[in-house]
Design a protein around this nucleic acid. Sequence first.
DNA 1: TTGAAAGCGCTAACAA
DNA 2: TTGTTAGCGCTTTCAA
Lengths: 342, 342
Amino acid sequence: MSRRITIRDVADLAGVSVKTVSRVLNKEPNVRPIMQDKVNSAVAQLNFKPNPQARGLRGNKTFILTLLYSNPNPDYILEVQNGAMEQGNAEGYNLQIFPCDHKNENLIETVSSFLEASPQDGVILTLPLSDNLQLIELLEKKGIPYTRISPFYSEHNSPSVGSDDQKAAYDMTKYLISLGHTDIAFIKGHPDHSDTDKRFSGYKQALNEYNLSLNEEIIKQGFFTFESGEDCARQLLAQKQKPTAIFASNDCMAAGVLKVSKQLNLAVPADLTIAGYDDTSVSQQVWPAITTVKQPIHLLGKMATKKLICKIKQKTWDEIQSIFECELVLRDSSSICNSTTN
Amino acid sequence: MSRRITIRDVADLAGVSVKTVSRVLNKEPNVRPIMQDKVNSAVAQLNFKPNPQARGLRGNKTFILTLLYSNPNPDYILEVQNGAMEQGNAEGYNLQIFPCDHKNENLIETVSSFLEASPQDGVILTLPLSDNLQLIELLEKKGIPYTRISPFYSEHNSPSVGSDDQKAAYDMTKYLISLGHTDIAFIKGHPDHSDTDKRFSGYKQALNEYNLSLNEEIIKQGFFTFESGEDCARQLLAQKQKPTAIFASNDCMAAGVLKVSKQLNLAVPADLTIAGYDDTSVSQQVWPAITTVKQPIHLLGKMATKKLICKIKQKTWDEIQSIFECELVLRDSSSICNSTTN
DNA sequence: TTGAAAGCGCTAACAA
DNA sequence: TTGTTAGCGCTTTCAA
């Protein structure tokens, strides 16, 4: 391994002072174009890359962003990671991850000690951490810039991005209604996730708009797990008047519903229409493939990172909260209602 | 935000020199216990955390490990990440991720420029990157310590960890044979992944041991994707003499097989036994749930990290390559062979 | 517009 | 065994 190229080497080669090189590298004003050219060509010639640690030490920066998450859905997390990476790298930041367990009693302590021990320029929070008030308080207290993905609470006036879950759930419900379904069951997500409420609201909104009454008997509390989907499906499909469609708040639970339907010899979609949410791989890999909602997860990761970097650089952004549209992905688990009662 | 606590504050409070504090922090020898106590209590009192950037700048270290991957399987990657995090954090390292695309023509350049721009102490490689000779050469040339997860090639004598894929595939095949199956089809994985060969070898080994002939007609080339599983299944199940069992090299493909079976009105497992590999979430969320092989992925991530840190610290490790056992996960997609021809 | 010098927080080399 | 000093590679301050 050869000796590291430093800013001094560049300065010597370009015949300028180190400060001038620094100015050019950091795009500071007040450098004559001639100087800039000299520096740039020296940089290129030596393939010089400034040492982030040295830059950080002096400027109290790290060029590291941390993604904090506690989410059992690998498809979701990986897509957020990819989006965050893409944007971060484009702007010269690296991405550090810190998976944690939101049910852990010592969460705050754990995160706090992590943040102290490993400095970073900013933090990205995903659900359900986005809504963890203690965590937000901690970040505020420490003065660490952060953005949140899909938060429910917006008191803190911190930048956030999200997708329009309510509208998507509304659209999906409307679609189910358009297929002729009137007994549309709903399986809610985990009460700790704020998504849960938004999706449920969209469902209610659509029913309301079409003058369908809200039937508490066909609204079940799930927990975003496959098993909870099964449980709810068993309850729903054991009722005298079975729903003709079940809208589950995520794909895992929808897959659970599909399993139970098959066990009960119900044909999907002929006897029962199923809809999920998230467009995770399982929704494509079961049969029939599940009709679902696709969130722009990659984009959320990207934009959260973009906003975070703006905040770090003290630049302003038009909107504190940006909401992106989801899209319906129609697959084979949904069809026109065949029920004789309708 | 208050001023950062530095080693000087600790030294002042403890009434010693900064070097003594440094010695205690780094567990260097030749410090009297009395001094150690003084320093430790000052550290605790001030809640002092050394600045990794400053330590790194001086010692040419970063305390950052990078996980390099290019793998379409989120369950796998996230589990590796978690394992690597767990071990890394325990030893004072942070984990940076760098997802890349192994099919990208500029992969080497991309990684190279990433490595130059963002210094780290070591790199962990997962498949298929573990077998990318150019990448390995790059790391060797730059003198960056690395470990590989599940590599096939071991020329480079670098530490690696892996699971015993051949044995697991052998065990699974033997299990299928024990159920009375003799026409056991095999769907191979992507030719770029070295896992593919190991799994196929295990299959062949078992057939051989039980004097079952290798029938090329029921061995198909898949690509680890759901669609390739479907394609292979369609070919296999269109043959005059259908296999009674299909062993797919991963769960995605097994899910594809399951879908096709259902489309063809074959009952699983009554008419067809299906086995997968990887124990990803999809294997549990389809119905019937798929019999599969569980790799100790979390452990692989952990051990790869542990070995990497040893290498960084120039400590030795007994074995250059550690192999861990997989386990069979028997679910509902496999049963005793009912075929009348047997 | 440019440069010299100081210093970010820590550790290595050396001195006491 | 302990302390002093220099310096890692960069940016900031201030002077030219």
